[in-house]
Design a binder for these strands. Structure first.
Lengths: 222, 222
DNA sequence: CATCTATTCAATTGTTTTGTTGAATAGTTG
DNA sequence: CAACTATTCAACAAAACAATTGAATAGATG
């Protein structure tokens, strides 16, 4: 057997990483794990697959060193191994959003339903909050908020939103955010809030984008 | 047939990009194309595959919008669609180099053969050239040099190096570079030069890394 | 130490991907 | 417009991958 060349060997190993993120569900797994640690069971319900399949996908990600495990009691908690993994997914998503016309169409189709057309980026949020006093609303599940959130945000998980409308300010602009660009919770929240005649917008960036920006500015300031 | 959800659709489309770079040969194709435009025939010899296979791989890359085509006479010239594609591959490579232990081993095995252990990054090159007068040697094929090169570099393609040794300075440090981290031409060149008792080192970064740095600093200075 | 439980493994099946071969095609060039 | 040529297509066989099922395992907990 002819041993393959240096180049071939390295490309082979590198393709372990790219292969790992080449499956839609595995990309989704990383996106979910970017929020906090999850057990296999939680992940399986989160992405809508059987435990066995979820476990197998996680093993592919683990073999590529994209996720790592920690035991916590009876549970094995999976987490993203590094911020560079989030960065990788962010780069892929950015490229896809900009280049694949089909994605634009899907996003437009989803958002055109209601008045979800206007949305903010993180930068636009900073700008807007300098002009007026906006309320930043985190609609992710409570434990994800607890694991980390944008400073100043108030947590009302999406499934509690209808019952906690009185906690929201009437005249003030409410900016809702969730996990990230592919998470629909903020959009759902805005639908509920505008139905109640509240002044609400969604932010397209989510917690991951904020976390990556933090890490970036931290390295710059060193 | 149940139409899949917003999220599922977008992940599906995004996986077109990640799937495209999930094959070693397709990653290699992008690396080659980062130097200049190539015809299918050239690419096929470059990566050591049949024309038909190469063409098929290129079509996968094209469907993911990672490469684009231009006809030039009888030839169809393929090129990378955007610097963001180079960036994507760079991020993957960086992550792989840092996380996959096997890659470290392969690289170490290859370089330990000779005195290739010491190598420079681009930043280290800048620093070194401020202290002493180094000669920057581009050992890539001539047409790749013509398509673009690091300013100040001198072109002597690897296959002409043995016949053009008299063009090289005796006492001065010669820094050889080639396509990028997975290209072995600079290493080969250093072997030849040190055998001739010349003072030579290789730079691990190549033309792509320089090009990306340029693009980066250009956007910063705007 | 026995039990319980979250996770992984193993075997199977159907699907997708890959590389090959040889034919077809599109488009240029004389 | 005929001939030529680089590229792509089509059909096939082999290999890799994915999802499912049910059994096995490792490790915590009482």
């Amino acid at each position: 057997m002819a041993t393959s060349s240096f180049k071939e060997q390295v490309y082979q190993e590198l393709s372990r990483v790219t292969h790992a993120i080449s499956h839609p569900k595995r990309m989704e797994l990383i996106d979910v794990l970017s929020q906090r640690d999850f057990s296999v069971e939680e992940l399986s319900t989160e992405i809508g697959m059987s435990m066995a399949s979820t476990s197998q996908h996680l093993q592919v990600l683990k073999a590529a060193k994209l996720v790592k495990t920690n035991r916590n009691g009876n549970f094995i908690m999976y987490s993203v191994s590094d911020d560079s993994v989030l960065k990788l997914i962010a780069v892929v998503r950015e490229l896809g959003f900009r280049k694949i016309a089909e994605i634009d169409r899907i996003i437009h189709d989803y958002n055109s339903d209601k008045d979800l057309l206007e949305s903010l980026t993180l930068d636009e949020l900073w700008a807007k909050s300098r002009e007026e006093n906006v309320m930043l609303l985190d609609v992710r599940p409570g434990n994800e908020f607890d694991a980390g959130h944008i400073p100043g945000a108030v947590s009302i998980p999406l499934d509690q939103l209808r019952n906690r409308l009185e906690e929201l300010p009437k005249g003030q602009t409410i900016v809702a955010y969730c996990r990230g660009p592919l998470c629909v919770m903020a959009a759902e929240a805005v639908k509920i809030l505008t139905d109640q005649k509240l002044k609400a917008m969604r932010m397209e960036d989510g917690y991951v984008e904020w976390k990556l920006k933090q890490a970036e500015s931290a390295t710059l300031s060193i």
